[in-house]
Nucleic acid binder design. Structure first.
Lengths: 342, 342
DNA sequence: CCCCTGTATGGGAGCGCTCCCACGCCGGGG
DNA sequence: CCCCGGCGTGGGAGCGCTCCCATACAGGGG
């Protein structure tokens, strides 16, 4: 019944005995306002509990102070991966500092995806953070083409028709460090359970593994590479294949901890001891990795920093400097976490 | 330089040879518009690629079509728990269907928390979904008091001064089913590694455990209850305490899978076989639970459904019916997933 | 044949804000 | 002593939309 109406800038102005323009100036901190006036306005704002209306501001400034974090299907399924959790935390922290809002968008079906593209290019957000792990996602190019400020999480897709900013974690280097560790431990028949071939992370980790092998002058026969789907079960399956094709292997680099867990199980079932018979290194440094038996040596990724850098790059460069800004690439280093498995 | 301007409703009206009001009517699907006119407007919209300006609409309707999902500190830390992942998925799906946006808000420090409260009660969102696991969080009461539509995830805090809608998962029942399972397997000295006493989930699961014990006429001596912090390490520590205080226990109900993992490790280190010597049941049905050795019997929670119900309740009741709506409570059932551990 | 009703439509008003131009007042130079 | 420049300020205009009143027209009953 009361239909309370929130105080407006105009009410603040009247209460402080000044004009609307002055109140606006105080709120936006800009321009010169005499100290006395400023103080009077501040007091009026406090007394009234005034909060600026974002919609009205957005209408005239054409900025929404909102950025979207888009997680494409099927990555949404992977939401529970610590990878995304870290990114969300990092993004959220930086955006809060910048006074920006975080809109979380997940697209499920194809139709959703289409509509999401319309929505995001419709000017409802100031910029888009896109975590798209698959190389065939059309969204980044589409948004970049529409002039929407975009920052990618992960290496950009094959042919970046529209150059975009991105933040990546050095998958090649991380994988290489894992495999180098195995080489340094004297292993010579080193297999890998790689990730899916259509994900940049999968490709890059496989490449890093191979580079480390080549660097040490070790052969890289095809039977020592099997692809998994980053899941526990996929890792177990891949390991069974490996054991069949190359029973004499003495080490495994798994491109994800989840897969490493599956590998570990299969090895145990096959009676191979870890690390005595087969050394194992994973990737991701998930919570579980610290508690396996034996504890898993793995590659830690700075996911929270990645999210933070993405948000920073979007706010300070992509949005601030506009579409003419020189595309920037930030690549973050990984850290090898040595435990008992390899 | 081009400073492209997006088409406005007015431009659509001119192009279709109609008035603004008519275009608005077509867009909002309401009122009566003749089929011909409607078609002409539709065509003009398509040709121009017109997308309504949300800010302008929000300014006049006083609705933002945005709801916030708030995850209070320190739960943000728990973001990687599948619990939150499921909720986000469920919420997101329902909101998309309703044409609502999802604003993700996390508050870190106390100051943030304060500002967040201001923000959320400032009319920038149509409603708030609040996942607050600690019983002393002041936010729900504050928002409800400010007349902001709120739906809680989890049982409301102690004295709900302002009655609120909530969606909970039946922690009491879930825990009871876990303990009943142990009783049914013939166990008599059943310990529990409970959750923190200041979290509703912790309290409720302990209560369920006790009810099951009482129901079977089993004693519930104090040495068989130890509190953990829901973490792996906390579970391991708690189990060591239990082993010392009650070496003759023959079963353990752990109030989270993470803790169950720690329990499992401690039991193995102590030379107890699971489930032969000590049966174990966890809670959460995390991905890891299926792959432990032995696989963990645990309680599955419908997290995605919980998120969906929260969003539905917010959109269809809390927002639609306003503050006078009768507070609703939805309690979702759990499901016992029987594996080998207990 | 006219009036009344109802349906389809046009367009003014105004949401709360920022932008920007104009105005008043001050002090210093001519 | 007057004029000019600049700082501090007030307030009109207008962002793009929805709301709602007014208008126009078509029919049916008196």
């Amino acid at each position: 019944m009361g239909e309370e109406r929130r105080p407006t800038l105009e009410m603040v102005a009247r209460r402080a005995g000044v004009g609307r323009g002055t109140v606006s100036r105080v709120i936006n901190g800009s321009s010169r306002v005499s100290p006395d006036t400023r103080e009077a306005v501040r007091a009026a704002i406090a007394e009234l509990g005034y909060v600026p209306n974002r919609a009205a501001r957005a209408l005239v400034t054409r900025r929404t102070d909102t950025v979207a974090l888009v997680v494409s299907e099927p990555e949404a399924r992977l939401f529970d991966q610590p990878f995304f959790a870290g990114i969300v935390r990092g993004v959220s922290a930086v955006l809060t500092d910048r006074g920006l809002q975080l809109l979380l968008a997940t697209a499920r079906t194809g139709g959703d995806h289409e509509r999401l593209g319309d929505y995001l290019s419709g000017g409802h957000v100031d910029g888009v953070l896109l975590v798209s792990l698959h190389t065939d996602d059309p969204l980044p190019d589409r948004l970049a083409g529409a002039g929407v400020p975009v920052v990618l999480g992960g290496r950009p897709l094959y042919p970046p028709r529209h150059p975009v900013h991105y933040v990546d974690i050095d998958n090649v280097g991380g994988a290489a460090s894992a495999t180098r560790r195995l080489i340094g431990a004297g292993r010579r028949r080193i297999a890998t359970v790689a990730g899916p071939a259509d994900m940049a992370a999968g490709q890059d980790r496989l490449r890093g593994h191979r580079e480390a092998l080549a660097e040490a002058g070790l052969p890289d026969p095809p039977e020592l590479t099997v692809h998994g789907d980053f899941s526990h079960e996929g890792g177990a399956r891949a390991m069974r294949e490996l054991l069949e094709a190359a029973p004499d292997l003495d080490a495994v680099f798994a491109a994800s901890d989840d897969m490493a867990l599956g590998v570990l199980r299969t090895l145990r079932e096959a009676g191979r001891r870890v690390p005595e018979d087969v050394a194992l290194v994973g990737y991701d440094d998930t919570a579980a990795a610290a508690h396996t038996d034996p504890p898993l040596t793995t590659v830690h990724q700075p996911t929270e920093r990645m999210g933070g850098e993405m948000a920073r790059l979007l706010a300070d460069t992509a949005i601030a400097e506009g579409p003419d800004a020189k595309p920037q690439a930030v690549v973050l280093d990984t850290r090898l976490v040595v435990r008992a498995s390899g």
